[in-house]
Amino acid sequence: MGRGTEKPFQQIGHPTLNDFEHTFTPVSMPGSSVHPPFEDQKCYGIDLGIKDFEEGISLKYLIELFSAFPEKDKYFNNFLTKLAGTESLRHQIEAGFSEEEIKMSWQAGLEEYKEMREKYLMY
């Protein structure tokens, strides 16, 4: 979580991840994040603002934090399923799939989609 900080979408972490060097403490910020998760608790994690930009979707930080998270059964919530559109991503990460293996599992669906959208492309 990075809400309640000056960089809400540029850092991720949790109070229990004290093996990570980057730290931040979420605070109440009226108008944006009045009561952020882990308010007034020191969180440890990753500063994404200093990482090199990669094209496409990167799952490496999601996988890295899951691997380090002590209570695996409490890592994911229903919002990830909503964003991903399926429980498959969560199950793959829990099963220890690598980023490459997960992305390869998307290929058949992507090819099917690309084929279907052909008739709608104008240029």
Rank of each mutant, 00 (worst) to 15 (best):
residue 1 M to F: 13
residue 2 G to E: 01
residue 2 G to V: 01
residue 3 R to D: 02
residue 4 G to Q: 02
residue 5 T to A: 05
residue 5 T to W: 01
residue 7 K to W: 00
residue 8 P to E: 00
residue 10 Q to V: 02
residue 10 Q to R: 09
residue 10 Q to W: 00
residue 11 Q to E: 08
residue 11 Q to D: 04
residue 15 P to E: 03
residue 18 N to W: 01
residue 19 D to Y: 00
residue 19 D to G: 14
residue 21 E to N: 13
residue 21 E to Q: 12
residue 22 H to T: 09
residue 23 T to A: 05
residue 23 T to V: 10
residue 24 F to G: 02
residue 25 T to L: 06
residue 25 T to V: 08
residue 25 T to C: 11
residue 25 T to N: 04
residue 26 P to S: 07
residue 27 V to C: 14
residue 28 S to A: 14
residue 28 S to P: 05
residue 29 M to L: 15
residue 29 M to N: 12
residue 29 M to I: 15
residue 30 P to F: 05
residue 30 P to G: 07
residue 32 S to C: 11
residue 34 V to L: 14
residue 35 H to F: 15
residue 35 H to Q: 10
residue 39 E to I: 10
residue 39 E to F: 07
residue 39 E to N: 12
residue 40 D to H: 13
residue 40 D to E: 09
residue 41 Q to F: 06
residue 42 K to D: 00
residue 42 K to E: 03
residue 42 K to H: 04
residue 44 Y to N: 11
residue 44 Y to V: 11
residue 44 Y to R: 13
residue 45 G to M: 05
residue 46 I to Y: 00
residue 46 I to Q: 06
residue 50 I to T: 15
residue 50 I to M: 09
residue 51 K to Y: 00
residue 53 F to V: 14
residue 54 E to G: 10
residue 56 G to I: 07
residue 59 L to Q: 02
residue 60 K to V: 11
residue 60 K to I: 09
residue 61 Y to Q: 12
residue 61 Y to T: 14
residue 62 L to I: 14
residue 62 L to V: 12
residue 63 I to S: 04
residue 67 S to Y: 07
residue 68 A to E: 06
residue 68 A to H: 10
residue 68 A to Q: 07
residue 70 P to S: 06
residue 71 E to M: 11
residue 71 E to V: 13
residue 72 K to G: 08
residue 72 K to D: 00
residue 75 Y to H: 06
residue 75 Y to R: 08
residue 76 F to H: 00
residue 76 F to A: 01
residue 77 N to Q: 04
residue 79 F to K: 12
residue 80 L to Q: 09
residue 80 L to W: 13
residue 82 K to N: 10
residue 82 K to T: 13
residue 83 L to D: 01
residue 84 A to H: 02
residue 84 A to F: 10
residue 85 G to N: 03
residue 85 G to T: 08
residue 87 E to S: 13
residue 89 L to V: 15
residue 89 L to A: 03
residue 90 R to H: 09
residue 92 Q to T: 05
residue 92 Q to A: 10
residue 92 Q to R: 13
residue 92 Q to E: 13
residue 94 E to A: 12
residue 94 E to Q: 15
residue 95 A to S: 15
residue 95 A to Y: 08
residue 96 G to V: 04
residue 96 G to S: 06
residue 97 F to L: 06
residue 98 S to G: 02
residue 98 S to I: 07
residue 99 E to Y: 06
residue 100 E to D: 14
residue 101 E to A: 12
residue 102 I to T: 07
residue 102 I to K: 01
residue 102 I to S: 00
residue 103 K to E: 10
residue 105 S to W: 09
residue 106 W to R: 03
residue 107 Q to S: 07
residue 108 A to E: 12
residue 108 A to L: 11
residue 108 A to N: 11
residue 108 A to W: 11
residue 109 G to F: 09
residue 109 G to D: 14
residue 110 L to W: 10
residue 110 L to G: 08
residue 111 E to K: 09
residue 111 E to T: 04
residue 111 E to A: 08
residue 112 E to V: 05
residue 112 E to A: 13
residue 114 K to A: 13
residue 114 K to L: 14
residue 115 E to F: 07
residue 116 M to W: 12
residue 118 E to K: 13
residue 119 K to D: 12
residue 121 L to W: 10
residue 121 L to E: 13
residue 121 L to T: 11
residue 122 M to G: 05
residue 123 Y to H: 12
